[in-house]
Computed example of a mutant assay.
Amino acid sequence: MRRRFAMVGAVVVVAAVIGAVVALRGAAEDEAEGRPLVVPANTVGEQRTSVLYGKADARHTLSVVVDPRCGPCARTEAALGRTMRELAEKGAYRIEYRLATVEDDARGGEGSRKAVNALGAAADEGPEKFVRYLGAVLAGRSGREEWDGDALASADTLLGIAGRVDGLRTPAFDKAVRELTYLPWGKKVAAAHNQDGAEDALPAVTLDGSVVTVLGEDGVPVSPAEFVRQVRGGKG
């Protein structure tokens, strides 16, 4: 009898946890309902769900898919972000950043969705500010540690991070972060990623559709030299 009650209790606890995760995800999605779709500037693609960095007429495209709460994405940005952008600035390719929110579904909370909204506001301010803000968001509390729990769900946290990027804290940016102006756009961004393969491990980097390896089997990012070798060898 005790064992039966224990099993029932365990089932109830698991159901409650699952229900809480679903409720949090639903809350973020509900917030997007009824809001007008506002698309940030400096976005590209059929549905404008990617943020462009580099020369729009570059012959090649580097696609970089990241989630703001993703630890491996943070490590890759720290090790390779500057190299990726330097090559884009030289015209080797253009970068299309695609934002995912899979960590909210996997870990619960709504930090990824709220961060994508803020990143949309940063994109609207300019590509350079977007990439600097993305790097700061991924860097975590000190630039060495990941964010605790669902810290990125807080507008105050997201605005605090924005203070590290010169010129980003404009009235328009602050308003968009607090009022969730780009949340419907973020929902489209997440849907576009799900359609294209939510099973992919993040970060996912491709050059003209061909996979570029950015993390070794041990989870450590490849060297900048190895990244350059891959992209230089893969384009004409």
Score class of each variant (00 low, 15 high):
R3Y: 10
V12W: 07
V12C: 08
V12Q: 02
I18T: 15
G19D: 06
A20P: 04
A20G: 12
V21G: 10
A23H: 09
L24M: 14
R25G: 00
G26E: 04
G26M: 11
A28P: 01
E31S: 12
A32K: 00
E33I: 07
P36E: 02
V39F: 13
P40Q: 11
N42F: 09
G45C: 07
L52P: 01
G54W: 01
G54V: 00
G54K: 06
A58D: 13
R59M: 11
L62R: 00
L62Y: 04
V64T: 03
V65H: 13
V65G: 08
R69C: 08
P72W: 10
A74L: 07
A74K: 02
R75H: 11
T76R: 05
L80I: 12
R82T: 15
R85G: 08
E86R: 12
E89A: 15
A92R: 13
Y93F: 15
I95D: 00
I95H: 06
Y97Q: 06
L99R: 05
L99Q: 08
L99N: 03
T101G: 05
E103T: 07
D104P: 04
D105G: 12
D105L: 12
R107K: 15
G108W: 07
S112A: 11
L119S: 02
L119W: 02
L119T: 01
G120Q: 10
A122K: 03
D124E: 04
D124G: 10
G126E: 07
P127I: 03
P127T: 08
E128G: 04
E128P: 01
K129A: 08
K129T: 01
K129S: 05
R132F: 05
L134D: 09
L134Q: 06
G135R: 00
G140V: 02
G143Y: 06
W147A: 05
D148G: 08
D148T: 09
D148P: 11
G149K: 15
D150T: 14
A151V: 13
L152G: 01
A155M: 02
L159C: 03
L159G: 02
I161Q: 00
A162T: 06
A162I: 01
T170A: 01
P171G: 05
A172G: 04
F173E: 02
D174E: 14
A176S: 09
A176F: 03
L180D: 11
L180Y: 09
T181G: 05
T181C: 11
P184M: 10
G186T: 11
G186E: 03
K187T: 09
A190K: 01
A192N: 07
N194K: 14
D196Q: 14
D196V: 10
A198I: 04
E199A: 15
E199N: 09
A201E: 10
A201H: 13
P203A: 12
L207P: 05
L207Q: 05
D208M: 11
E217A: 13
P221V: 06
E226I: 06
V228G: 07
V228I: 15
Q230K: 14
V231A: 02
V231F: 06
G233A: 12
K235W: 15
K235Q: 15
G236I: 13
